[in-house]
Design a protein around this nucleic acid. Structure first.
Length: 469
RNA sequence: GGCUGGAUGGCAGAAUGGCUAUGCAGCGGAUUGCAAAUCCGUGGACCUCGGUUCGACUCCGGGUCCAGCCUCCA
């Protein structure tokens, strides 16, 4: 049975959906004013495999995955002004870029991808409800604030109480607020800013309310899982709870899942620190699957240290797995439409690992065990080897790994200044004839030439094969 | 200051009250013209101090150090 570490309770709990065999999950997505970095890649990949696994358990059609897009906020406005660019063209540009990055990483699209600007009605209705209930007020600067003191359990997610928060607060307090912790629901538009009509004047939504409104709109007032990066736990998710439960008077979300940070030199990768690596830049040097493996080789809650060294290791590990699938996986691709997992020790251990709060490092270790088994069988029992290869691919597929053709992954793509596949094959052919003549020095010379181009040769009984380092 | 979480072998990274994680790198052997790949084998760890226990890396308590949150951030 699947267990999930629930941020709300701080405990690992058995996962029981609200509606039998139906799962609803909302994940906070991107604010689209810049390219996605590796931290974003982690959220994308982590919740991708969570969704894949939930679909495996509950059936593909019984999981609804919603990931929103924040397409209106202060930073977007600031960036648009900076670029001298229309807001809509800016956000659309980065939405497209995000989709490209996610697709490259093998992240499947969510079922619903709501945008804040397309849900103004729901946002306004929610603020109105909070006003009617006396949980929100319009301050004399025109902004509408949520009155945190009206929500008794505020701080339940972040495990904080109001006194601690106030005493430690370093933020400059907006004078108009009744209480420093109150947060904005509706922000008055300044001259020239994009705005929407509201009962309180022209303005735009605060950051937190959009997620309450969109999740409720897409999944209802009470749903199963809400996820996002750890940095959203407070205040964003805390505020979502306050807004949603303040409105409905009942439970909002049962399970909160937060993935850990990506670090650089033991420091959190973040936009404000400027120490972030853009996905598309990393993709210049590493195959997307290498990034995916790198992310999944740690538990989603652990800190993940970004470095070339660690990406190189991820690549080496992945190479080992693909090496096992060489010359065997071509015949398998058709059958992956309806994966067969085989009921044996391997799949049991794999599923046990995944059931234990999505323990992907342990699940991956099973893939290596399978690859060793496969290598042994390849020479002794071709039929059984095929079954194991099939299983390896089927299980890996749940992690979005080993979905490429082995030879294609290992040979990679020719770099602009590197040798083409044809040139490589020509040299290998020359070497083959030298080999027939037992001209070993010529053989070694050609191999060295290729090695200098980062092409690695492997002589096998079936002939010479090659891969790019 | 308050609150979270963490400290595992050369590196990355899991589990577990007594039994091999796994990967990368290393070493020995098989294989190979030599390599590579693969297979077989192998060395190497549990921050510190106490406590509980027949037995603790694993549970409890103190300490040290690290990261994060309390402010926009996935």
């Amino acid at each position: 049975m699947l267990h999930i570490q629930n941020t709300l309770s701080g405990k690992k709990e058995p996962f029981i959906p609200i509606h039998k065999n139906k799962v609803s999950m909302y994940v906070c997505g991107m604010t689209v004013y810049d390219y996605c970095h590796i931290g974003h890649a982690r959220v994308l990949v982590v919740f991708d495999i969570i969704t894949r696994y939930l679909r495996k358990i509950y059936g593909a059609d019984n999981v609804t995955y919603v990931r929103n897009i924040t397409d209106i906020d202060d930073k977007i406005i600031a960036r648009a002004i900076e670029n001298g660019e229309d807001i809509n063209s800016l956000t659309q540009r980065f939405i497209d870029a995000m989709h490209e990055d996610a697709d490259a990483l093998g992240v499947k699209r969510p079922d619903i991808e709501p945008r804040a600007t397309e849900h103004m009605d729901e946002i306004l209705a929610m603020i109105q409800t909070l006003m009617d209930k006396g949980m929100a007020y319009q301050a004399n600067n025109g902004d509408v604030y949520y009155q945190v003191s009206q929500f008794a359990t505020y701080g339940q997610l972040a495990k904080k109480n109001l006194d601690e928060l106030q005493s430690g607060s370093r933020v400059e307090v907006e004078q108009a607020k009744r209480d420093p912790m109150d947060f904005v629901l509706w922000k008055m538009a300044k001259e020239g800013e994009p705005s929407w009509d509201s009962p309180w004047g022209k303005g735009r939504p605060g950051w937190h309310i959009e997620c309450s409104a969109m999740s409720t709109q897409c999944l209802g007032e009470h749903f199963d899982i809400h996820g996002g990066g750890l940095d959203l736990k407070f205040p964003h998710h805390e505020n979502e709870i306050a807004q949603s439960e303040g409105c409905t008077g009942h439970k909002f979300v049962n399970y909160w899942i937060h993935n850990g940070f990506v670090r650089v030199d033991d420091e959190k990768m973040s936009k404000s620190l400027g120490n972030f690596f853009i996905i598309r830049e990393v993709l210049q040097s590493y195959a997307p699957e290498v990034i995916r493996y790198f992310i999944l080789n740690s538990h989603y809650m652990s800190p993940l240290n970004y470095s070339d060294e660690n990406l190189d290791k991820a690549k080496a590990s992945l190479t080992t797995l693909y090496q096992a699938l060489l010359n065997i996986d071509d015949a398998l691709n058709d059958s992956l439409e309806t994966p067969v997992y085989e009921d044996n020790d391997y799949s049991q251990r794999f599923f046990q690992a995944m059931d234990d709060d999505f323990n992907t490092p342990m699940a991956i270790s099973v893939l290596f065990d399978l690859s060793h088994e496969l290598n042994r069988l390849k020479n002794t029992d071709k039929k059984q080897a095929k079954i194991i290869a099939q299983q390896l691919k089927a299980l890996a597929q749940l992690l979005g790994l080993l979905e490429n053709n082995a030879q294609q992954f290992l040979q990679g793509n020719a770099s602009a200044d590197g040798l083409s596949d044809d040139e490589i094959n020509t040299l290998i052919a020359q070497r083959a004839s030298a080999k027939q003549d037992k001209n070993w020095s010529e053989c070694d010379r050609i191999r060295d030439v290729l090695d200098a181009e980062d092409i690695l040769l492997e002589d096998t009984p079936e002939g010479t094969r090659w891969r790019r380092k």
